[in-house]
Design a protein around this nucleic acid. Structure first.
Length: 490
RNA sequence: GGUCGGUUGGCCGAGUGGUUAGGCACCGGUCUGCAAAACCGUGCACGGCGGUUCGAAUCCGCCACUGACCUCCA
């Protein structure tokens, strides 16, 4: 149906046809993690959502520069009167250098992104490496008269901005409502208005992460880093800005305000936001402390988890829901995803065994069209997966001789499966067997199963069943297949 | 309180003004010494009340419940 890519733009609240500023090139900026904790399921969703976008744009032959930052400074702790940022606070608790903490969690983030088969961005800038650029932005905004100094800190003047521009154009916030409902926080006496946000924050004496500036020794405000780094690597205006829905306000709204003043334009033309993962209907996140880390998923070591789940299962679980919908965590849903994914991936092997016929019962052109239409409709991965399951059933029927396909169609079908399952969705069969093989056990099991096969050949089923039962008690499941028995450790 | 969203069969989760989403589970079947696995097949739905319409789960209104943001968060 649609041969053009449409994406939902939060700015217009509509699906819009995607047209890049420069033909065939895309500038993409996504808010990355704050590295002061282990990556959890929520991080996986954001990363996979924009990995899907990155992969699909690349698949469509766009040259994409994908920038995803690492936030290693600047987040103000809401309960920290002294203006500590999160990383510094954690560092003191752990008695480590702040940068050591940031590096540790950056490494952890990379480790789990690799396991999820999330591609590396083109550039992964760190906020701490762009203090100079951020200070330049502070200067510019001050020069233009939309910021003011107060006790060594610099704040953005939201009310003045709103007189000439629209503060709330992205989030739909109404400034009058915000003024009456914004909470009074500590340290706000320095600000002219509750709505004003920090561009530069003076560091308290015990604050470790600090940089010199003409305003004070301090650190940049959180919203500034994305404005500075996106402009540096993608230009004053670029194509797509992504992030979690929870960043919509105030983070992205503030980015727009800063860039509008400093650069004279809205930084990005398309704003995309992934929805949250919920657990028992509530957002999974730090605030509620109800998050499950990616490590816990792979070990199964969490009270909420009935078993361990592979990173690929998590990836598939996330891709089975549309990125703008909430996705509810449950063991049942995870296990369903696990089984479904295995069936889907198995089709890649099954399709290799099909013998072509003179005629086709399978409409490859329609299948191809369905796959593209699904992705072109705002990256509708669940619909794409549904079509892939339709193909899986057809393939199984072909392998069973119930349906036929010509050699030409078969070739196309294989290509499409590889393209959409491996390249676009980024699922990898190899990573399924990520549990390291125990070769000694494997050797012993081979021996046992050979013996059992002999016993079975002699129709000594009592012994054969005894072997199977005893192994089951030891946690090893034996399944008799057509080509001999297979086993797995539970 | 303000702003915006959601409510789909046992579970997860798409979508559309009239035609089967899909997965998992269940049930039936094929296969198997048996079982499991695998494969094939079937059934079950659109929060409540009104309205618009030839026809609404899909559009509109009201109600109920629920979530996100408004403070760091993917």
């Amino acid at each position: 149906m649609n041969n053009k890519l449409f994406i939902y733009n939060t700015l217009s609240r509509k699906k819009e046809e995607f047209t890049p500023i420069i033909p065939k090139k895309v500038g993409l900026y996504v808010c990355g993690p704050t590295v002061y904790g282990d990556p959890h399921l929520g991080h996986a969703r954001a990363a996979i959502t924009f990995d899907l976008l990155f992969r699909y744009l690349t698949f469509l032959d766009y040259k994409v520069r994908y920038v995803r930052n690492i936030t290693d400074v600047g987040h103000l702790e809401n309960d920290a009167d002294e203006g500590d940022d999160k990383i510094a606070k954690k560092a003191k608790l752990d008695d480590l250098e702040p940068m050591e903490v940031a590096q540790y969690y950056t490494n952890r983030y990379h480790l789990y992104m690799d396991q999820l088969n999330v591609l590396n961005p083109s550039i992964e800038p760190r906020a701490s490496g762009h203090i100079i650029e951020q200070l330049e932005l502070v200067d510019t905004i001050l020069d233009k008269g939309f910021a003011y100094e107060s006790k060594g800190s610099v704040y953005f003047d939201v009310e003045k901005y709103h007189q000439q521009h629209h503060y709330g154009k992205l989030s739909g916030r109404i400034i009058e409502d915000l003024l009456s409902t914004t909470r009074a926080l500590d340290g706000q006496s320095e600000k002219r208005s509750n709505l004003d946000f920090a561009l530069w924050k003076k560091a308290s004496p015990e604050h470790i992460m600090r940089w010199p500036s003409k305003y004070s020794t301090g650190f940049p405000g959180w919203h500034l880093e994305c404005s500075a780094m996106s402009a540096k690597y993608l230009g004053d205006q670029f194509d797509i800005h992504g992030g979690g829905m929870d960043l919509l306000f105030p983070h992205h709204e503030c980015e727009i305000a800063q860039s509008t003043i400093a650069k004279g334009k809205t930084p990005a033309r398309y704003w995309m936001h992934n929805n949250m993962i919920t657990i028992n209907g509530q957002k999974m996140g730090k605030s509620l402390g109800n998050f499950i880390t990616l490590e816990e998923f792979t070990t199964g070591d969490h009270a909420m988890l009935q078993k361990s789940y592979s990173p690929m299962t998590i990836r598939f679980f996330i891709l089975q829901a549309h990125y703008r919908s909430t996705l509810d965590f449950s063991n049942e849903a995870l296990m369903a995803a696990e089984k479904g994914m295995q069936r889907l991936l198995e089709s890649l092997k099954t399709v290799e065994k099909i013998a072509p016929s003179k005629s086709s019962d399978f409409n490859v052109a329609e299948f191809e069209n369905n796959c593209y239409s699904a992705m072109n409709d705002d990256l509708n991965s669940p619909i794409l997966i549904a079509h892939l399951f339709d193909a899986t059933r057809a393939i199984n029927n072909m392998a069973a001789g119930q349906l036929s396909i010509t050699a030409n169609d078969l070739k196309q079908l294989k290509d499409l499966l590889n393209a959409f399952i491996l390249e676009v969705l980024g699922l990898t069969p190899e990573m399924e067997s990520f549990k390291e093989a125990d070769t000694q056990l494997a050797t012993a099991m081979d021996l046992v199963l050979q013996w059992r096969a002999q016993v079975k050949a002699n129709k000594d089923y009592v012994t054969a069943d005894k072997i199977r039962d005893e192994l089951a008690k030891a946690g090893i499941t034996v399944k008799d297949g057509k080509d001999g028995a297979i086993w797995e450790v539970k």
